[in-house]
Each structure stands twice: as C-alpha cells, then as structure tokens.
Design a protein around this nucleic acid. Sequence first.
DNA 1: AACCGAAACCTGTATAGACAAGATAAGAGT
DNA 2: ACTCTTATCTTGTCTATACAGGTTTCGGTT
Lengths: 237, 237
Amino acid sequence: MDNKYLTIYRDFAERIESGQLRVRTKLPSEHELTQLYGASRETVRKALNLLAENGYIQKVKGRGSFVLGVNRFEFPVSGLVSFKELAARIGKESRTRLVSLETVAPNRELADLLHIRANQPVWEVVRTRTIGGETIILDKDYLRRDLVPKLTKAICEDSIYEYLERTLDQSISFAKKVITVEEPTPEDQDLLEMKGYPMIVVVQNHVYLEDATLFQYTESRHRPDKFRFVDFARRHQ
Amino acid sequence: MDNKYLTIYRDFAERIESGQLRVRTKLPSEHELTQLYGASRETVRKALNLLAENGYIQKVKGRGSFVLGVNRFEFPVSGLVSFKELAARIGKESRTRLVSLETVAPNRELADLLHIRANQPVWEVVRTRTIGGETIILDKDYLRRDLVPKLTKAICEDSIYEYLERTLDQSISFAKKVITVEEPTPEDQDLLEMKGYPMIVVVQNHVYLEDATLFQYTESRHRPDKFRFVDFARRHQ
DNA sequence: AACCGAAACCTGTATAGACAAGATAAGAGT
DNA sequence: ACTCTTATCTTGTCTATACAGGTTTCGGTT
C-alpha cells in the first residue's frame, strides 16, 4: 500500500533470496518496471539503488540490472539484525539462556560509553546463546533504564529488539560495530564451552535510536572457531 | 564540475570529518541547500541520503539533518579502502614489504573461488605490512592474469588498487568480506611477529569489477591483538 | 562476409512541481 | 499564565520531463 519503492524493493529482494530469480538474470529495464508497477522512473530507481546497495543486484550503465549471487547462502551478521532474526534465517536449532538480569550503577567506563551520569541506573542483561548444542556466545547488554522501564526474563529470552519495537515503539535506527580479539575472562571460561581456545572474539555494538540517542551498549563474545562475520561493501565514487 | 550531488556530499563529509562542523550541529534545511548550491531539492536530498547512509548525519523528519559523531576518530576498516589509503588516514608510519610475486596454477579451491579453470594462471602476491615497527599483517593476493597483464615489485609495494584504477582503468565496484579466526600456519609464524599468539584473524576479500566479474581474492591475516574492524550499519525499514 | 554508422534502448544526472505528514512557533482565547 | 488551534517550516514520497552518455542492434556499404 504505502511506500511504493519499498514494495518493489522487497518484491525483488524476496525473489532473489528465494532463488526464484537466478544469478546473472537480467531484471526488466527501468522503463518496463515503471509500467509493471505503475510507478515513475525515479521511484523504480530508488528501489533498484537499494537493491544494489545491499548486494542483490549490479547496475551497469547502458545495459541493465543483473542479479548478483554474492549474498545468498550467507547469513549476514553484518547490518542490524537481532540474534533471533539471525537464528531464524540459518534455520539451526538455537537457544537463549538468561544468566542474570539486574539494574546496576554504571562504572566510569560504561557511563562514558552510554553518555550518561554515574548515578543513572542501567539494565545489565547477561545471556548465553547455544547453537547446535554448543554454548558459544556470551551477550552482555547494557540499556538505559529511563528508556526501558520494564524488562523481564521472558522478554530477554525471546528478543529484546522485538519488545522494543513492538511494545515500546522505540525504533532502532543505526549501530556502530567494533570487532576485536581478546583473551577470555574467567566469566567467559565459566559460561561458555571454550574447549581450551585461548582467545575470544568481541563484537561491541553501540545501538542508537532515531533521534540519535545512544541507548544500548552490547558486548557479544564469541568462541573463535564458531565466529564468522560477513560484510558487503560498495566502493562509492 | 560534474556530479553535483557528489560535490555536495564530499563538501559536507570533509567538513564533518575535519571537525569544522561539530557534532549535533543542524545542517541547513534542504530548501536552504538548494539555494546555497544552486541545485534542485532532489539533488540535495541525494547528497544528504549518502551522508546519512555513511554515518555522517542523521535525518529526522520534520526537524532536519544533524551531524553525528559516530564515525570520527575511527579508521574504517569497513568499506572498500586499500591499505595505502588506510595507512594515510591513521597517519602512522607503515610499510609494505613484498615477499613473493609469481604466476601460479590455481589449486582446486582457488580456481573455485575465482570462478576460473584450473589451467588459467593467476598472480600470487604475498606481502607483509609493518605498522609502528611491528610486522603484523600478511596479505596474500590472487589476481586473474588475463585481467592484469603486468605486475611489478614497485606496483605491489605501492598500491595494487591504485595501479588498477589509474593505469588499467579497471574500476573496482564491490567486495564481499568474511572475517574468521584460525590457527596460525607455519608461514604466518615465519613472516609475522606473532609473539606467541595462538590465533590469527583472517579477512577474506572477494573483489569484483563493475561488470560483476570476480577478479581478485585476498586473504589478509592479522595478528589478533592488533586487529580492529569498525562497521556502521543502518536498520532499513 | 566483414565493416561501419545510425538508430534504438538503457542507465545516470538534474530539474520543477505536487502532496503527505511530523515538528515547531506564533497567536487567540480562556 | 496556560491551553488549544493555526500557520509555517521541515523532511518523505511520487510524478513528469529533459538531456548526457554508454550499449546493443540492425541495416547499408564496401
């Protein structure tokens, strides 16, 4: 109904992901798409540019748009998707276990990361993720209490993102990820099946709302042998 | 001169990166920008959307565009930038050393990765990167020989990307990155100052040209303590 | 059959205008 | 002083049109 260009975008994204449109297939020309969807050319182009930016198609001047095979068969840890969305895509049996859920006073470092005062309480959520029978991810979330009044065991074991967007109507807008490798802490050793691996992959996530306020800081700690990050990037200019 | 919207984009990107435009500053409205640059509103919007997509600004409906402070003070390993471009940005003393440069017949795995036949020769370039006095990155590049006829020591120690774009006029269009963590090989131990670290971060890079042909496969092997990957992602929809 | 050039088709950039909807500021009335 | 309404400013979506510059096609010439 609303958002014509997103409709076109989702239409093709779905058809490409499902394999209905095969790799190297030529999409209809922009002119043909305007007639197919009853939209103007600029609207069609907006959809096509989104598809190109996300790695679905490649646009070639004078020739047309072609389906890329880059993104399929990969689960994108890139971008902004919650663990639940991710697990659903790869189709593997996965489970989230809540380790602890409490409100704490942030230490210096954390207060600095969240841009809040040291007396402002925050939620601390510690969860482990089990995939394929092995507990390999430790997630530590810190959320601003003033923005998230209520948080329960059930919500944490389902999806915090979903709760935020559905119930609280807080829209997540963008995030900054930082990936580093560190030595595992005793906590890592305790909660994860480290199997003697001497290092751990740390994905720090700074999550922002639409008004650009930072409201969540997440540390996702992965056992190195099971870690895999996929990124698609275009060279602009 | 050409590309009005890129001019506007670069103008603001530069001003934000240099700190001339401070965080939380409100940009002129789209209407004001049309008059400032003598451009139409759609052209201005194209520039602003690019800025938003790359993490420079946040657009808020009904209010305006505001400078974000997310991307500054970070060197983006994300996106598509060559090591030379990267080293220039962080300003640290860095050096590239060529270990070997030869044409080889690809093994099964490599031929598969590059989508070529096993009898088609490829360039194998092995280089080490030294930053701040420590040799911490091992780069192994494989390029299709039919697309890159000549390759010399001087080119490899400068920047292969620059050579491709300037001399051969081959435009790099997009890339797929995969980050994993592995055990170091004897070659890693031999060429890098591993300092006893038992793991190595492997960044696999599949680089494509504008006609979507895969022409380069790169494996960048980083000592774990010096590895850092930064990513900015927007949640669309 | 091979070559060349013009037409037709395709995407890239840019413009001007229209309406919707969110946010703010000003003003009227209480 | 306070509240509610209204006007104004702002961004989001969409349309129609124009020209530039690549790519392909096709027909005529050699």
